[in-house]
Amino acid sequence: MHHIKRRSEFGKKMKHLQDKIENLIALCRSCHNKAHDNVLTKAYLIKKHNKNLGK
């Protein structure tokens, strides 16, 4: 699982939102590494995730 928005971006008051399905995407190890290297951008992951959720 990969957090689309980094956990550190939530702050203490919003910490409960970091593990919601809207912020999580399942990635294989290779894609997970690419996400951390910003090869797969946050915008790309959001677009792909929304498509998977039927949005």
Rank of each mutant, 00 (worst) to 15 (best):
F10R: 04
E22N: 05
I46L: 12
R29H: 10
M1L: 08
I21Q: 05
L27S: 03
I21Y: 07
D19N: 15
D37K: 11
G54P: 04
K48M: 14
M1H: 06
K15C: 07
K15E: 13
R7F: 11
K42M: 12
L45Q: 03
I21R: 06
K55V: 11
L27Q: 03
I4D: 14
N38P: 00
K51Q: 05
H3M: 15
L24C: 02
K13Y: 10
D37N: 13
Y44V: 07
H36V: 02
H3Y: 15
L24F: 01
I25G: 03
G54E: 10
R29A: 14
N38W: 02
Y44H: 08
K20Q: 11
G11Q: 01
L53F: 13
M14S: 08
R29Q: 14
H32E: 08
T41Y: 10
V39L: 04
V39F: 02
I46W: 07
E22K: 03
L24S: 00
K34V: 00
L45S: 01
T41M: 05
I25C: 03
S30T: 13
N33G: 06
Q18A: 14
A26C: 07
G54A: 04
L45F: 03
H3D: 15
A26Y: 09
L17P: 00
K13W: 12
H16G: 09
Y44E: 15
G11C: 02
H2S: 06
D37V: 02
K48E: 14
C31L: 08
K51M: 02
I46D: 10
K55A: 10
N33H: 08
N33M: 09
V39N: 00
K55L: 15
K51C: 00
L45T: 02
A43C: 07
M14E: 10
K55P: 06
L24K: 02
N52E: 15
T41R: 05
D37A: 15
C28S: 06
A35K: 05
F10M: 04
K20H: 12
A35Y: 05
I25K: 00
L40W: 04
H16Y: 15
G11P: 00
D37M: 09
S8I: 13
M1W: 03
R29M: 10
R7N: 11
H2Y: 08
S8G: 11
K55I: 14
M1A: 11
E9P: 03
K20W: 13
K5S: 07
K5E: 12
M14Y: 08
S30M: 05
A35Q: 03
L45I: 05
D37C: 06
H3R: 15
T41W: 08
C31Q: 04
H49F: 01
S8T: 13
C31I: 09
N33L: 09
T41V: 05
Q18D: 14
L53A: 15
F10D: 03
D19E: 13
K47R: 13
S8H: 11
R6E: 14
C31D: 15
K55G: 12
I4H: 12
N33F: 06
